[in-house]
Write a protein that binds this DNA or RNA. Sequence first.
DNA 1: ATCCTCCCCTAC
DNA 2: TAAGGTAGGGGAGGAT
Length: 927
Amino acid sequence: MRRRDEKFPENGFEAWGGYMQAKIAKLEEQFCVSAGKEEALSDIFNGVSIYVNGFTVPSADELKVLMSKHGGTYHTYQRSDDYIIASNLPDTKVKNMNLSRVVKPEWITDCLKSNRLLDYREYLLFKNSRTQRQLNFSKVIKNNDSIPATSKVPDVKNEPDSFNKNLIENSNIIFENEPSMQDVLPTESELDMKKSSNLHVQTVSKAHSGPVTKTAADPNFIAEFYNNSRLHHISQLGACFKQHINDLRENSNFQFPARVQLKEKILNSNNFNTFTQLKFEKNKVIMHIDMDCFFVSVGLRSRPELRGKPVAVTHSKGGQGRPKREGVDRHAEFNLYKQKQIKKFSMSTGKPENEVVIETRIDSIGDENEKYGSMSEIASCSYEAREKGLGNGMFMGAALKLCPDLQTIPYDFDGYKEVAYTLYNTIAQYTLDVEAVSCDEMYVDCTELLADMKVNVQSFATMLREEIKNKTGCPCSTGFGGNRLQARLATKRAKPDGQFFLTEDLVEDFIYEIKLRDLPGVGRQTAQKLEALGHITCGSLQSLSLASLKSQLGNKTGAQLFDQCRGRDQHPLSFLTVRKSVSAEVNYGIRFENSNQCIDFLKQLSAEVHSRMQQFKVVGKCITLKLMVRDEEAPVETAKFMGHGFCNVINKSTTLNKATNDVEVITKEVLAICKKQNIDPKEMRGIGIQVTKLEPLNSKPSKGTINKFLANNIKSEIKTESTASEGVSVISGRTIEKRTPTKVKKVISTKSPLGKRRGRPPKSLKLLQSSTRNVGPSKSVPSTSKNLPSTSKKVMNNFLQGQNAPRDLPYKNPMIKESLPKEEPPVKKEPKGMIGLPWKTVRDMLRAWLNSDQSPLQYDVNMIVEYLQEMILTKDIEHLFILMNFLRRVTREVGSDVWLKVYDSIYEQVQNMMVAVYGKKLHVFDD
DNA sequence: ATCCTCCCCTAC
DNA sequence: TAAGGTAGGGGAGGAT
């Protein structure tokens, strides 16, 4: 299907100025340049790495070439130590970003002109208080601070900040492309001071007491904190990929042409015949797939020299002593945690408190100013590090104690996202019976896939892992079993970089040895309880009756554990996720001096929640405020820098009469609750806002018949779902209380999946159609592709929308817009534009375009439409399908109205052409 | 019995 | 220094 070869079009566009055009030109230029000679021209930018944001002159592609020619590095995704090159930035961005490294592109060109690295601070895009970092001895601020950060007139020149100290100080850190001191810190500070004489400046007296630290009282705190929070990113990415699977399923016709190629590959591999046929419980094949120490693996892609060494991803490096903070009492604080834990344990087990021995992660950490005192957490560590006893979540101090030669690498959140997309999209070529767990982990029901491909599971696993490794540069492990529990445990056995098949005959012996703590759902508390009952392993727990387990741990948990320790799992995979709550919380850096700061923060956090609700298109009825307040026994100064320390947690909620996402309402309720608690703002250590009892936001005006059509469709989905669930429960012979009715009710109550567009006509049926757990009536729905007339290219059928789109009556399709026929496709007498470019290149260009922060130009839109229409004419439907899906997803990610309109416009014109050429619409998208 | 609310626990 | 978020499941106990 890859009929286009990698050639560039003859250059012939006369109009200039469109983003895409610029891109094309640069692309070509870059191609020519890199095709030319490879040697560097200078090393001016040695150690400098840049990220280009938005439209610049020279363009991003040009800058990329320039950097590589002159010793620098260009990043497609922004990293923390990049200089951000930009000529202008949208307001929304500016508000949420650290501007101290946002530099005009002239910096690069001027450096080249003068053939040396100039002080980037001369080229800051924004020069005001926001771009100024903390100073050690004096701080100069503008007298008039009311000039908005977005002011296009950098009329003010402040004293530049001293170069970020910690970048230099820690020599054992691996920093990529860290600028060296002499390069970037010329003695121009004094110069700057003189230049600034035309301003009113004042020295902040407070500055003498040391660096000013960022707290939640700072206006930009939330954004900066979230930007750096691994937990925030983990959570966001998880939600993102659950949605991604929802979207893919919604837009798919559940044909998987890539299976053919994979099968061929498998059949051609020489080891194919060496595998025996495996049998899993109930003849289902569930795969669990998990990237190996994900964050580390992504980081190591660009640091091959660290492979095989103990490596950890963390913010800080530890090792050095920390500045002594007055009033810290680690022992007192840790003791409080420990006592609480002991008390809890004693209560739940009946063991007297003085007999309880508990080990916590704070036991092994040194004093704050010691070598091993760092309380920075490890997000992920390599297997070499795990061998020495390190684990995720461990403090750096403790980790260094166990492993003094630990190498640390910084976070690369964009990298994680990129790799995760590749992972998911790789799987999605073969099946969409996928339950996303997180950005690096999912369950896949392979039953249908393997039956269809008629290949053995071992070959499939081998090839799939190889493909993922090739595409992402990161290893992963897969486990297979007859249910999700078995698959999951198999993966654990398979790690690292392996695969394991927990076949029916192995389950009993295998599960017997499994530690209870390793069961999903059994955490520290449950494991402790079970241990108190005398059970460490699944085998041992099998001796406990269902009744006693239930009485010890509750009905559901008890029953689940009873199943789990026998290797059973009745929970089917769920391919569709429905959001039930939206929340935002910050338990770091919360330090208020007065109630105004607190109120201001609550407002900001309310706005954050509001914006997320908008993003997910929901309104909610119940608003909960969570407050962490310093325990009166806890030291005022926390052990962890800016941490929350030992706290009491307060949760208070209000239920409204009507669901809302109004920021004013949320703020008002939140402030009211907070006020009622009567808490000294100085004692606050954490704040969270949650909205529950969600309903989908009905933004679209009613469309009469269409809506009816939708409602019916959704009902049928619910019905099928419930039958399916019951079917499963009967088959598994389990005692399942009210599970099914509850589930059904949940589905009904949400009507259509939240956080996504309503209105998806034939999708619901298809959604169920290929789900292997459905044995009910949905099976009888005929395959949509059968209705289509045959085409020369068989695969094309996979992408055409079959239902409701007969050749001669396109307007009967309820999803076709009224406006459809009114304009002709744009005439393309003009330059060839993008036509001829490989689709992958176009995809990358689209991505860059969407990330460019530029307003889309009509010209560019037209050019893209032309390109896509050309694909229709040349019958390259497969890639058209990919590009359209891509465009849809990405425009929604950007989420702004203007981009959604761009998408709609492109969509409409493409479908016009589809109808004109094939009498059918491309099978994608509902709106 | 079942539902609602306020938690706690777990996972990534 | 350091970035301790977020969503879902479920139990306890009171309200219906």
